[in-house]
Write a protein that binds this DNA or RNA. Structure first.
Lengths: 251, 251
DNA sequence: CGGGATCTTGACGACGATCAAACTTGGTGG
DNA sequence: CCACCAAGTTTGATCGTCGTCAAGATCCCG
């Protein structure tokens, strides 16, 4: 079932790693994996707490809103969208998760996942099974500290997002979005200049509170101004200076 | 310095309570105070960890963005706005805190307050001094649990706010805001029908991403339709049904 | 290679921002 | 206690941005 890819050995967890996956040291789950000694056979941590490299196919659902919180996940390759499903109307997209990022941390507080998550492309994840964590014998205290830190970052990010989305024009939002995705991909060293916008125009619009037509129009405008190069879903940012300044105008 | 008000005794913490303040049992800090046994003299908890009823005057700043996180606060009476100050442009309001609610929980994760907080009217708070908490001898574990829960709620609230603000019209946002404030005040039993909108129209507009003129215009429109009664800053919601339905239209 | 989904582009209109002016309120000091 | 002034509020007029509807182009998956 797994996609065949060239393999090397991760210099962190010492397990075979596929190219195009983030390495453990770039992964958001790493602080916690470190606590668990990467589930080495000799670490005393039982099997099944940390599941490595589960593959998730494009369009597949990782978990659904409201189902009991069991694990959280780190994206090893690919990308996901988080959304709140609505029966009568269109779903509300609340975030995207790229390689190296965590998914599902919010479930920790509420016991249930507050949104559904679906793969935007063929992807892979590591799964940390929280309910079995006490078996690991690791200090509850250290884990709680890590969780508090994660949640705190999430809260801070949410605040910023609100501040920006509510007060920004369509151009600002889209410039900011393009830059944000780029920065998140480069932080994990997943990218070299050109990258893949795996989500559709209407996903972007939904997330930013814009019509998909507006997203398309403004991307075209950016291209005509020579700020970006677009080849369908492939994006290259040509003029970071200007893009940054657009995204920050009169904040 | 304190405002003279009739007093009774709080049946929770057993200390004198001013009328117009929330009682301990309605207060967001209560779960934590309970752990500390309300800092009773015989509880063994040192003085100065939990400071009761500090008065904060209208316009006074409780703490500033970026200053080291020392305590968090519970609003006993009055109300506060949280904002991100900008030197060159107008401040960004990120939230309001009403009686019974907590302020500053996000500082827990980052060591610094992520926003400034200022009193909208003469108010009072209880302060929980976090850095001295270890001296209390209370279980770190229980406190961490409480913190995780608080942060989790904050994250969930933020998600919802994003979802609603980004996709709603001005009418929906304002109807939702009026209802939200009302619900938060009644939950703590602070209100009987009519309540005080202590923040200015431009604060509301700033928070919701609207011009203050728009806020004013739409409130007037609601009044003309018989949905609310307005007397300057006093608000009475007359038709909850319709207000609810306005705030939820096509979400 | 075909067909359904996605994307682009155009035309039009509505919502809400901006500018401007009159009015109200509340705080201050005479 | 009242007059005054600054800040906040209301209301009107105008204009730009962006959503909607529609048609055509392109892509992508089976």
């Amino acid at each position: 079932m797994d996609i065949i890819l060239p393999s090397t050995t991760c210099n962190r967890c010492q397990k075979p790693a596929h190219i195009s996956e983030v390495e453990c040291e770039e992964c958001g789950l790493d602080p916690i994996c470190a606590v668990l000694n990467y589930s080495e056979p000799d670490s005393g941590v039982p099997e099944g707490i940390l599941v490595r490299r589960k593959s998730v196919k494009r369009g597949e659902t990782l978990f659904r809103k409201g189902s009991p919180f069991i694990s959280f996940f780190a994206v090893k390759s690919g990308s996901f969208k988080a959304f709140i499903p609505h029966q009568d109307q269109v779903d509300q997209i609340v975030g995207f998760h790229l390689a190296g990022e965590l998914i599902g941390t919010e479930g920790l507080a509420s016991e249930r996942y507050p949104y559904s998550v679906r793969a935007l492309e063929n992807s892979s994840v590591c799964e940390l099974c929280l309910e079995r964590l006490p078996e690991s014998g690791r200090s509850r205290d250290v884990l709680q500290q890590a969780v508090i830190k994660l949640l705190g970052e999430e809260v801070a990010f949410g605040r910023e997002l609100i501040a920006s989305l509510v007060h920004q024009s369509a151009e600002q939002r889209i410039a900011g979005f393009i830059l944000d995705i780029y920065k998140r991909l480069t932080r994990r060293k997943m990218v070299t200049g050109t990258y893949l916008l795996s989500m559709s125009r209407s996903d972007i619009g939904n997330y930013l509170g814009l019509a998909s037509e507006t997203v398309s129009r403004i991307l075209t405008k950016f291209q005509k101004r020579g700020l970006v190069k677009l080849e369908h879903k492939r994006v290259t940012i040509l003029d970071f200076e200007t893009m940054e300044s657009i995204s920050r105008q009169q904040d």
